[in-house]
Amino acid sequence: MTEGDTSYLRAFLKARSGLHLGPEKGYLLQIRLAPILRDAGLASLAALAGTLRSGRDPDLAAQVVAAMTTNETSFFRDRAPFEALQRSILPRLVEARAASRRLRIWSAAASTGQEAYSVAMILAEMAPALEGWTVDIVATDISAEVVARAKAGRYSQFEVQRGLPIRLLLTHFEQGPDGWVISPELRRAVDFRVQNLLDPLERLGQFDVVFCRNLLIYLDAETKRRVLAAVGGRLARGGFLCLGSTETVLGISHAWEQDAEAPSFFQPRSAIPQPYVASYAQTV
């Protein structure tokens, strides 16, 4: 394994997913890619780098990205943002959107779906206030594998215990042979799709709330700005962006305003004019 192969793999990951892997994290390549080498019958990371360079094996490329990204998530992760969504953000949006009776919510780095399903459970509790409304929940991730898991909605006992109040487990899950399955109604409420946030996002449409949590922490400053601008560009006027608990002070303070009542939520200080997203990104 030469310096060149390591830096090729790091550059590959950055170009593909935005993942920033510092030179000191080279050992992670070794650990996380070992199973892929074994399955693909490749002798070393150098051989893997060679195959990726040749561009002959797109599946392998996707597997490498998936193996290196962190999928850690849980239902109602960090609690506070979901409480704020229910108590403060959604009631305000219900008022603001009373004319169109339409709400669109996006979980932008959804991993195995717990975030999107948590939102769906909150909306189910609010059903009386949303009678006659059209509510879309879209959930996307770069990894086809986690998107498939999210769609299936199967979770282990361990996964449902982390953060899910038992009342909601009883309401929204069915017991399967080896774990718990989200109810068909809730599964139908979420539209899961594969989407790389570095690719064009326009076809997703616009959203009133966008969750982009615990992804930016893995990106370098430039990619972070790019993703924030692209994701922020999907916000409808008056919409909210929700960031992860450690992502609230990411040097974005002058472009985004933190909500006074719901500190995980942000709004752009001025509308983001779509044609100017690129220059906006440079000045954030």
Partner: peptide, 8 residues
């Protein structure tokens, strides 16, 4: 489920 529901 039945057991959990009974406890609750």
């Amino acid at each position: 489920v039945a057991h959990i529901a009974r406890a609750m």
